[in-house]
């Protein structure tokens, strides 16, 4: 794969280390003299010194037709412009953009960037999932938090324990995607029996997540 890495110092270094070799062809562009020197030294690859938001610079770096373009600059609008150039002018197949302001994730996507990553948002996500872990619930979100996967461990005191799925009248807003019962993974249907210590993986929207958790954790009457 032909990968272009624009901007960034430590992040770029880490990404380069991970992609180097493995039949990848890396093009590194950096507009900071010090960072460029550092990257050249640590990666032992040629580093192109120039501004990735300027078309002539990207042209000189020969990024045309690359597979992936990763913009790691500090400023959101610089990353936006370099990604857009890569996509529209140099027909790069996929552009990944880092942004520091989490509000810009949606904006960048609307403006045509393929993939946008916000470290602040990821941090919030992992704090959230850590904090719900304490109450034995692990969640994971997909498609920018439009879908959540919730992991719930069944206790013997729960109402739904020792019941078939068709008997419990599971909320229509969610779906039990799978049940993990050591060491097997069960794809459930109506006749599947829910047992204590089962791990239910439930698919729902974030709005319905709370209702589903309280439904599953309802105790026996």
């Amino acid at each position: 794969m032909k990968i272009v890495i624009a901007g960034g110092a430590n992040t770029a270094d880490y990404i380069i280390k991970n992609f180097k070799g493995r039949s990848n062809e890396l093009t590194i562009i950096n507009f900071d003299r010090e960072a460029a020197n550092y990257l050249a030294k640590s990666s032992k690859l040629p580093v192109f010194y120039g501004d990735p938001t300027k078309p002539y610079c990207l042209k000189d770096a020969r990024i045309e037709g690359s597979d992936i373009f990763i913009a790691l600059g500090n400023r959101d609008c610089d990353n936006y412009v370099s990604c857009l150039l890569a996509k529209k002018v140099f027909s790069v197949k996929k552009c990944i953009c880092i942004c520091s302001n989490p509000k810009n994730v949606e904006v960048f996507k609307q403006l045509g960037i393929d993939s946008v990553i916000s470290s602040t948002e990821q941090l919030v996500q992992s704090i959230l999932s850590e904090s719900s872990l304490e109450s034995l619930i692990k969640t994971m979100s997909l498609e920018d938090e439009k879908i959540v996967l919730t992991e719930i461990i069944i206790k013997s005191t729960y109402y739904i324990a020792h019941k078939h799925i068709m008997e419990i009248n599971f909320p229509k807003t969610g779906s039990i995607a799978c049940i993990y019962r050591r060491p097997r993974v069960i794809i459930p249907n109506g006749s599947t029996l829910i047992l204590p210590k089962d791990k239910l993986i439930v698919l729902s929207t974030p709005n319905d997540q709370k209702d589903i958790i309280s439904f599953v954790q309802r105790d026996k009457k």
């Binding site: 959101d76 609008c77 936006y80 412009v81």
Partner: peptide
């Protein structure tokens, strides 16, 4: 004064 901000 910044082109990239202006474009964005």
């Amino acid at each position: 004064g910044d082109d990239n901000t202006n474009l964005f």
